[in-house]
């Protein structure tokens, strides 16, 4: 009888510790999850902004004068050839 009581008291105590341990672990994981979610949100926002900025920098209005300073011009008809048509592609 005594053994039963003592062991069950021990069991109760042990499971209580386990439970509180789990509780804190859960909270920690939750906090971590929130942090990761925030980081993911932030990353998504940053990606959206960077994407928009890249598109803005790559807009043709800006690229064209830059390309022209390097001596580049729009592709002309002499630069196009169908497969098997390479000889005549030189144009006039």
């Amino acid at each position: 009888m005594r053994m039963l009581i003592v062991s069950s008291a021990f069991l109760a105590l042990a499971s209580a510790f386990l439970l509180y341990g789990l509780n804190y672990e859960t909270r920690r994981i939750e906090a971590n999850l929130q942090m990761l979610e925030r980081a993911a949100d932030k990353a998504k926002t940053d990606i959206a902004i960077l994407k928009a900025e890249r598109a803005h920098l790559a807009r043709p209005e800006r690229i064209e004068p830059l390309a022209r300073t390097y001596g580049l011009v729009p592709a002309g008809r002499n630069q196009l050839a169908a497969t098997g048509d390479e000889d005549s592609a030189g144009g006039r």
């Binding site: 926002t45 959206a48 598109a55």
Partner: peptide, 9 residues
Amino acid sequence: GRLLASDVE
């Protein structure tokens, strides 16, 4: 696929 409009925060 070149971007014309996008949402930013």
